[in-house]
């Protein structure tokens, strides 16, 4: 005789109905914001909707975007990686020095991805095994890399001339800048893993309820290490792209990048508490913020208003995201 639990689930859920509405609202809100912004800047500046400028935006969005893919994974497990900006600066110096010794893009790529991954593994180890809060662990690493990048060449930059690296950062495949192609590949792969693979499912589970994940036999520590390693490796890749773009490795290249990346992921609707978010939305977040910077410069309103606008965007995103709505619901319930 099969136990009948119909009656157990009887009471229709008012909470459920409101939650469903909330989620739908959130999904549409981001796309609406994106569309509105495109419309706004198109009206503000004739230079905005030109092919050249759109490709320009795409290229600028690519480096931040690549880092944002890694950051999305990290934030999904309720972690954070504040070291990515300084890591970009430091890895850039490493790349430039490597190229002086071995003038090969393969070597540069190996160093970029290798060092980034190792750094990420270290962060992940601090977080998952030593239980250092991610904020503290990655903040400390950020300081270390900042100093490291400056000490590397006595505060000075290093010049890069390798043509393949310059092609990677500044070149084109047809009309499309190479970094955009790289970003597209990373984004698609990242999205597939997150939405279609067992690993991706585990990432969401750990973010949603780490204890439940552990009890269910999910290798939480291993997933955490992998996620941080991914974030580091992608920061390393971004460093290579920056070096290729600027033909220079500077200790200042990564200044403020971690905040830009985190802002993009948050505007994309990822919850800092973990378990909620996806790469399609992260892409929209990256584009919304990149277009903001670009539009303001095109229109000639630059400077402090840029910081203001970015800050307001992040605040709005957090307010409109599920988190605040959920807390409000809980209060009423």
């Amino acid at each position: 005789m099969t136990p009948n639990m119909t009656a157990v689930a009887e009471r229709p859920s008012l909470r459920g109905a409101v939650a469903k509405q909330g989620n739908r609202y959130r999904d549409y809100a981001l796309v609406a914001v994106f569309a509105t912004e495109v419309l706004f800047w198109t009206l503000q500046s004739p230079a905005f909707l030109t092919l050249n400028n759109l490709l320009n935006i795409a290229r600028q969005a690519s480096t931040i975007g690549i880092m944002a893919v890694g950051m999305t994974y990290v934030i999904l497990i309720a972690g954070i990686d504040l070291s990515v900006g300084s890591l970009v600066s430091f890895t850039g110096m490493l790349i430039a020095s490597t190229l002086i010794g071995i003038d090969s893009i393969i070597a540069a790529l190996a160093v970029a991805l290798g060092f980034g991954a190792v750094s990420g593994l270290f962060s992940g180890y601090l977080v998952s095994r030593l239980h250092v809060p991610a904020f503290i662990a990655t903040l400390s690493l950020m300081q270390v890399y900042l100093a490291g990048a400056q000490l590397w060449n006595d505060g000075g930059p290093l010049s890069v001339t390798n043509s393949a690296v310059l092609m990677l950062g500044s070149g084109y495949i047809g009309p499309v800048p190479v970094p955009v192609v790289v970003f597209a590949v990373i984004l698609l792969c990242g999205h597939w893993v997150l939405s279609q693979s067992v690993f991706g499912r585990h990432v969401y589970a750990i973010g949603g309820n780490p204890e439940a994940a552990r009890l269910a036999g999910i290798p939480v520590r291993r997933v955490t290490l992998t996620v941080y390693a991914l974030s580091g490796a992608l920061a390393g890749l971004a460093a290579l792209l920056f070096v290729g773009r600027l033909a220079t490795a500077s200790p200042l290249t990564g200044t403020g990048l971690e905040l830009q990346v985190i802002a993009a992921v948050i505007v994309g609707g990822c919850s800092l508490f973990g378990g909620k978010g996806n790469l399609r939305d992260t892409l929209l977040g990256v584009l919304v913020l990149t277009m903001l910077q670009n539009g303001l410069t095109l229109v000639g309103v630059s400077g402090f208003w840029q910081n203001f606008a970015t800050g307001v965007a992040v605040l709005l995103a957090v307010l409109l995201s599920g988190d605040v709505l959920a807390k409000m619901r809980k209060k009423e319930a």
Binding site: L246, L252, T255, T297, S302, F304
Partner: peptide
């Protein structure tokens, strides 16, 4: 335009 003093 205002920059943050960096090349990037």
């Amino acid at each position: 335009p205002q920059t943050d003093f960096t090349q990037r």
